[in-house]
Every structure is written in C-alpha cells, then in structure tokens.
C-alpha cells in the first residue's frame, strides 16, 4: 500500500510519519506538497503533526484552505483513508471531516510525554489489528489537544462507536478522555497521540505499529 504524507509549511512530524511508514512498516510513502492537488495515488493520506502555517490564528485554521485539502476531502468522501495526527487531527476538525475541536490543554502548558491509551473500538481500519483489551503507550506532544464537542455530539460518537482511543489518565482535559475519533464513514481518523513516534523499540515503544498494521490489513481485506 502507499502512504501520502502532506507537507504544509510548518509541518514538522512529516518526516517522522514518512519514516515510520516506509522504514518501520515497510510501505511506500511519499510527501504531498500543500499547494498541489495530486495525492499521487496514495491509499492512505497522513496529515502529520506540526504547526501548519505557524498555527498563529488557530491550530489548523489556515490549512483547511490549502489546495491539497480539497483533494484530501474528495479522497475522504470517496471512502479513502485519512489519518490526522496531532496538528493533522486539528486540521480535520477545522475542515469538518471530523466533529468537535481541539482547544488549549487544561493547565495551559504544552505537554510532551508518553501516555497510556485504551482502544475505544476495533471496528475501524485504523484499529482492527489492535487487541481490544490492549493498553498502548504512545507519546503526546501538544499544547492544544483538549478534545471538546457538545454533549449531543459526544453522545453520538459513543452511540456510533466512533471513539478510536481514550486516555487512561487524561493529560489535557479532553472530554470523556477522548484521544482519537472516527468520522461516520469510519475512513477518517484523527488522534492527538503520535503513533509514528512509537514504531520501534529504540523509540521506547512499538505500540503505534498497531495503527499501521490495521491499515495494512484493511487494504488487503477491505473493511466492511
């Protein structure tokens, strides 16, 4: 399968996602430039972490207007896989592919540390290969990762089994401990933790491989 990693001005985890997908998972991976509209045949588009356009206005607020995002939306609408990590998650909520918003962490500080996650659902192409009872150690690194949505949306997410990951110990005040969510079509996922930073023992954890393994499985045996 082929991963496309979008490079916005200010993306800084683009190389990490590319390295994880190509070196540690062994798939093809290519960078996609923000002002292009060509996804170069990517099966899964990754919106990486970083500070796209400096995030000076509001995280992800400018990126949604970039040419590549219209291609990403089309790809998503057609059922294509899109994974937003950290700033990528923020962009997905800004452009409406995912519900809710990410706001300043409770405590108002940037936090970088490994956190423990529980998988919320294994019924998705991003989580299908993960043990339902598993606890995954995956790092976070964000200042605005507090997941927020209105009660109705949160209820809906739970009712539709669209919460991909939850924090075991909530680091940032996210409502209902949400660390990652799916869209209604289950082909778009955003998560604040960085699975690409946990893809080999030398990084301190390989638990992020579960996300990549799930994606691999979903493409070889398409998800229902």
């Amino acid at each position: 399968m082929k991963f496309g990693v979008v490079v916005f001005p200010g993306s800084n985890c683009d190389h990490d996602a590319w390295y994880a997908a190509s070196h540690n998972v062994g798939h093809q991976a290519e960078f996609l430039w923000h002002s292009d509209r060509d996804l170069k045949g990517s099966d899964c588009v990754i919106l990486p972490g970083g500070f796209s356009y400096g995030d000076y206005l509001r995280c992800g607020a400018i990126s949604k207007f970039s040419p590549i995002m219209s291609a990403v939306k089309k790809h998503a609408d057609a059922g294509g896989l899109v994974l937003g990590i950290c700033n990528g998650f923020q962009i997905l909520t800004e452009c409406g592919l995912l519900p809710g918003a990410l706001v300043r962490n409770r405590g108002l500080k940037f936090i970088c540390k490994p956190v423990t996650l529980k998988v919320g659902t294994v019924n998705s192409p991003f989580t299908s290969a993960i043990e339902p009872s598993a606890e995954l150690v995956i790092p976070i690194a964000h200042g605005e990762g507090c997941y927020t949505a209105d009660e109705r949306t949160l209820d809906e997410l739970e009712a539709e089994d669209r919460i991909a990951f939850r924090y075991v110990e909530n680091p940032n005040g996210s409502l209902r401990d949400i660390a990652g969510v799916l869209n209604a079509g289950r082909n778009v996922m955003g998560m604040m933790p960085h699975p690409e930073r946990a893809t080999e023992p030398l990084m301190g954890s390989s638990d992020g491989l579960g996300v990549f393994a799930s994606l691999t499985a979903s493409l070889t045996a398409p998800h229902k």
């Binding site: 990490d16 390295y19 994880a20 972490g49 500080k109 970088c112 790092p139 690194a141 030398l202």
Partner: peptide
C-alpha cells in the same frame, strides 16, 4: 520544565531529558 519541550520530534531521541546525557541516533 522538560515536559513542556517536545523532546521526541524527528524520532531520533534514544535518551531524552532526565538522564546523565542525551543520546540522539543518526539515522
């Protein structure tokens, strides 16, 4: 202090803050 710093970006940090010395791998 150091949890406010992203000490992992670029996934080269073999030993980060809190040890005797920091260790970065060169891919």
């Amino acid at each position: 202090i150091w949890e406010q710093y992203d000490h992992m970006v670029r996934t080269n940090t073999v030993e980060g803050p809190g040890g005797d010395a920091a260790v970065m791998r060169i891919k």
